[in-house]
Write a protein that binds this DNA or RNA. Structure first.
Length: 317
DNA sequence: GCGTCCAGGTCTACC
DNA sequence: GGTAGACCTGGACGC
């Protein structure tokens, strides 16, 4: 049964704002679920709000300098005004429409690595997940696996334990709920999703979230150090994963990105990427300060263009 | 074909 | 407060 439209609203953003680059990243990252549909500057996607799935149609009606996004919300029943406010707030926050990039661009214009990157990706916001458990699920599947294998784990999770909704003539698959995973036996999870040792971790995270953990809005209200502490208390979530879940705050280097930034900073590949991470993080901190998280996302979404300019293929890693 | 290596990290056990 | 070693699994690679 198709969900029906329950309300819609328009969002304005601080310019420059590129809707397309924000929700449909050049490197292939999605806004909410890998199964969402992006066509003609419109995104059909889904999220979960207070345990219930909602369909979202986000449509760009504006321009880079006069951005405007129309957002239609679909659900199987009417919703209260309080819920509407909550949903609207969450979508705005995840679209990062209130974020002012001008200070970042000011700094980037004086930086050899970023100067051209910010021209290529002008108006792009970093990631901003609209739902907590999927962000944690993503972080877990990214650990210690090549991208292809991570994609396989995510697809199997969504296929076997996720949900599917139809609205506005489209069907979108969405991540499993924490309740669904918490109800699963670890053997079944392992067998159906190829998560390997990560299955125990995901199960533990799901259980912790169902018995009591701050929701997204509560985390957003907390100081960053407190958010980090809470997330680190989850089994299988370390520093790297925290920076995946709370994008734009740190510099989530892994073996793959360490190779890329080592080439950009020092002109050659590191002998041992894992050992180079500490030094690279410090270099990024000294060079880009509080904007290092933005620099991270911008660079990794512009690898083909950077490669052409420097004459080194950074997409091969 | 078959064996080996290691990946878009984290935890534990030990110092 | 710092650091080896183990950890599922499957693609990539060498032979």
């Amino acid at each position: 049964m198709a969900l029906k439209k329950v309300y819609s609203f328009d969002i304005e953003a601080i310019p420059p704002y590129s809707f397309e680059l924000t929700v449909h990243k050049p490197a292939g990252w999605w806004w909410s679920t890998p199964e969402e549909i992006f066509e003609d500057n419109t995104l059909w996607t889904a999220t979960r709000f207070r345990g219930k799935l909602i369909g979202l149609k986000l449509e760009s009606l504006g321009t880079l300098m006069e951005p405007k996004i129309r957002c239609a919300v679909f659900r199987d029943e009417e919703i209260s005004d309080a819920e509407k406010n909550g949903i609207t707030f969450r979508i705005k926050r995840a679209l990062r429409t209130e974020e002012d990039l001008n200070e970042f661009y000011e700094m980037a214009r004086r930086d050899d690595v970023l100067r051209d990157v910010i021209k290529d990706l002008r108006g792009m916001r970093t990631l901003g997940w609209p739902d907590l458990f999927p962000a944690l699920t993503l972080a877990v599947t990214l650990q210690m696996a090549p991208m292809k294998r991570s994609r396989q784990m995510m697809e199997l999770l969504i296929e076997n334990f996720g949900d599917k909704i139809s609205f506005d003539g489209k069907t979108v698959s969405y991540w499993p709920s924490q309740e669904r995973i918490a109800d699963t036996l670890v053997e079944e999870l392992k067998a159906k999703t190829k998560l390997g040792y990560r299955a125990e971790n995901l199960l533990s995270i799901a259980k912790t979230l169902t018995v009591g953990f701050p929701i997204l809005e509560e985390l957003w209200e907390m100081p960053h150090e407190e958010v980090k502490k809470r997330l680190l208390s989850l089994r299988g979530i370390g520093n790297y994963s925290v920076e995946i879940v709370v994008p734009g705050t740190g510099f989530p280097l892994d073996v793959w990105s360490a190779k890329i930034f080592h080439v950009l900073f020092f002109g050659k590949e590191p002998g041992s990427p894992r050992e180079a991470i500490k030094e690279l993080k410090k270099t990024a901190q000294d060079r880009w300060g509080k904007w290092r998280g933005h620099a991270f996302v911008y660079v990794l979404n512009d690898l083909p263009e950077i490669s052409k300019r420097i004459g080194v293929d950074l997409t091969r890693f």
